[in-house]
């Protein structure tokens, strides 16, 4: 077996057409091994469709996929045992218990060891906090419990990659927090996590890399830090004598000042020395009631990218 490559997921020009609509339009993903990779995009942007192609559920119209260095769909059966996934929400047999549902799915996987099956199922249930409800039939589960059972299913075996499609959908704030903590702890074990979400805050909280999807295309991709650096850092300032302050700021190389209520807002370099500017202003007898840097948020960057903000585009 060759060395593990750099990428957990690699696609090249991946495309999926439904009729003449291209749900996914020539995307090239590069998901580094060991990363927590956010796949961010509004509803209908093609996230689930992409995931279906990655897992061999749907055939790509065009393009190439490598999943854990295996060619997809050719080497699907070799790649999939190393991948745990939650796709488009959980799905189970309602008339069977949570535990029996997991046993069923694990029995389908001919690479998994029947002698450890029960122990693995119980461990996965424990991990997602469902041990007490393991014997209940799934039709009696809340959406949150189903979502966790879906995660337990993804964790039935040691995995190299977890593909999680909107794992906190439909959860209450408490459940959302628990799932996010679970994802963090899995990431800490070194498992690569590919997390799709339409929630920017979720991606910002959990991920170190991100790709931004809109209408089937990737608008931006890279580490969170890289993407943040696209935005403009701003200096926010509130003073008593505005005109004098403007002149002084000019001597410090700060122009293009805008005003918003009593605040002055100026674009600055991100490594600007705020303390020094404060010192200069104070020396000139200007009273500074507020001075701070505002770092560019991802949200602004997305608004820049998508133009109309984070809405359903189609």
């Amino acid at each position: 077996m060759s060395e593990k490559g750099q990428w957990a997921i690699e696609t090249n020009g991946l495309t999926k057409a439904f009729g003449d609509q291209k749900a996914v339009h020539g995307i090239s993903l590069a998901v580094p091994r060991g990363s927590v990779f956010g796949f961010l995009g509004p509803n209908g942007s093609g996230k689930t469709t992409t995931i279906r192609m990655l897992l061999g559920l749907a055939e790509a119209t065009d393009g190439e996929i490598k999943l854990l260095d295996h060619q997809i769909p050719k080497e699907l059966q070799v790649a999939l045992p190393k991948v745990g996934a939650l796709v488009e929400g959980p799905a189970f047999y309602p008339y069977m218990s949570g535990r029996n549902n997991l046993i069923r799915i694990d029995s389908a996987d001919r690479f998994s060891d029947p002698s450890t099956r029960k122990a693995r199922v119980d461990a996965a249930l424990e991990r997602v906090g469902l041990s007490n409800a393991a014997k209940k039939k799934v039709h009696a589960y809340s959406l949150g419990m189903k979502q966790r059972l879906g995660l337990a299913n993804a964790l039935l075996k040691p995995r190299e990659l977890l593909v999680l499609d909107e794992p906190t959908n439909g959860l209450d704030p408490q459940g959302t927090r628990e799932v996010r903590n679970l994802i963090r702890s899995l990431a800490a074990e070194g498992i690569t996590i590919f997390l799709s979400s339409h929630l920017l805050t979720e991606i910002e909280q959990l991920c170190d890399h991100v790709a931004v999807m809109s209408a089937g295309k990737i608008l931006a991709q890279g580490s969170l830090a890289e993407l943040r650096s696209h935005g403009q850092t701003r200096l926010i300032l509130r003073v008593d004598k505005i005109d004098e302050a403007v002149d002084i700021l000019k001597t410090q190389g700060i122009g293009k000042i805008k005003f918003s209520k009593e605040n002055m807002i100026a674009p600055v370099a991100e490594d600007i020395d705020v303390a020094k500017i404060n010192e200069v202003l104070v020396k000139k007898k200007i009273k500074v009631s507020e001075i701070r840097l505002e770092h560019p948020s991802l949200e602004e960057y997305f608004v820049d990218l998508t133009g109309e903000g984070f809405e359903v585009v189609r």
């Binding site: 059966q77 999939l80 045992p81 991948v83 996934a85 796709v87 929400g89 389908a108 996987d109 001919r110």
Partner: peptide
């Protein structure tokens, strides 16, 4: 219809075998 088919297939189970 239940959606369990996608989870069986990514378990994975070969389609012909299923």
């Amino acid at each position: 219809g239940l959606g369990t088919l996608r989870y069986l297939l990514i378990a994975p189970v070969n389609r012909a075998r299923l």
